[in-house]
């Protein structure tokens, strides 16, 4: 089971709601993904409108809505968006995204840390999107993030786990769940993230823009399960050499 803050989840696949060809397709794909956490851009929805196309089609009993601050360029903007969302009934869960560069959409570490500290102190359950920087992960955890979401590769690139070694360090050091977000273009990328011990992954584009988003969602779901099972069964990973049969190390000095 995946535990984040005070909630537990059976699925370790988080999905996004953007970029689908239709709301109906979005709902079908999310169902096929078996995901229990869906992220939704605050700028895309009207929390106060019960007829909002995204909000009305996904049951809050079944899914944890994870509003994100996509579009925010600095901490001030992200904090304002988050407060506004909570005031409109969006709850305290938040995927924090602060991306000042509209070209790469890479997260700003300084503003992300600032916003996390402010929002965590206000009772938000903050899950910051971040570059795969181990020290930043620790700093975010120290100021109250309930999970960290390092990127596997820049968003939308489909490059997979190009930050793998950094993410391995983050996983080893973190006391909060590590959710790999962004850049995972294929189920094998998601499996790789899970095999090295990530607690979960978030996938949006790769599912939403697939020829058949429903089948692709299922493929990711299976890959995430396969990767997790492999990790938990003790994958024989990174064997650096065979055990030397006749070592030359002298221990004759031992009495």
């Amino acid at each position: 089971m995946l535990s984040i803050a005070d909630r537990t989840f059976r699925s370790r696949l988080l999905v996004g709601t953007g970029k689908f060809s239709s709301s109906a397709m979005m709902v079908a794909a999310i169902e096929a993904s078996a995901s229990e956490i869906v992220t939704v851009a605050l700028r895309r929805i009207d929390l106060e409108d019960p007829g909002d196309d995204i909000m009305s089609m996904l049951s809050r009993d079944r899914y944890l809505f994870l509003p994100n601050t996509s579009g925010a360029r600095d901490a001030d903007e992200a904090v304002r968006l988050a407060r506004m969302a909570r005031a409109s009934g969006g709850g305290e869960w938040l995927k924090l995204e602060v991306t000042p560069d509209p070209r790469t959409l890479l997260p700003d570490p300084v503003e992300t840390l600032k916003a996390t500290e402010i929002l965590a102190a206000e009772g938000f359950k903050v899950m910051p999107y971040m570059n795969a920087d181990p020290i930043l992960a620790l700093r975010l955890q120290d100021v109250g993030a309930v999970a960290v979401m390092p990127l596997g590769a820049p968003i939308g690139t489909n490059l997979g786990m190009i930050t793998r070694f950094q993410i391995e360090i983050i996983i080893e050091q973190a006391r909060v769940p590590v959710i790999v977000d962004a850049g995972l273009g294929a189920p094998s990328h998601a499996a790789e993230a899970m095999e090295i011990g990530a607690d979960a992954v978030l996938v949006n584009t790769a599912i939403a823009v697939a020829g058949d988003p429903v089948r692709m969602a299922r493929a990711f779901a299976m890959a995430v399960e396969a990767g997790r099972d492999a990790f938990e069964s003790g994958l024989g990973r990174k064997q650096i050499e065979a055990v030397a049969s006749s070592p030359t190390t002298g221990l004759d000095f031992l009495k």
Binding site: V243, A244, P247, T248, T249, G250, L251
Partner: peptide, 11 residues
Amino acid sequence: PYLPIMAQRAG
């Protein structure tokens, strides 16, 4: 029995 190999790895 693996003490010499452990020594090597530790080194």
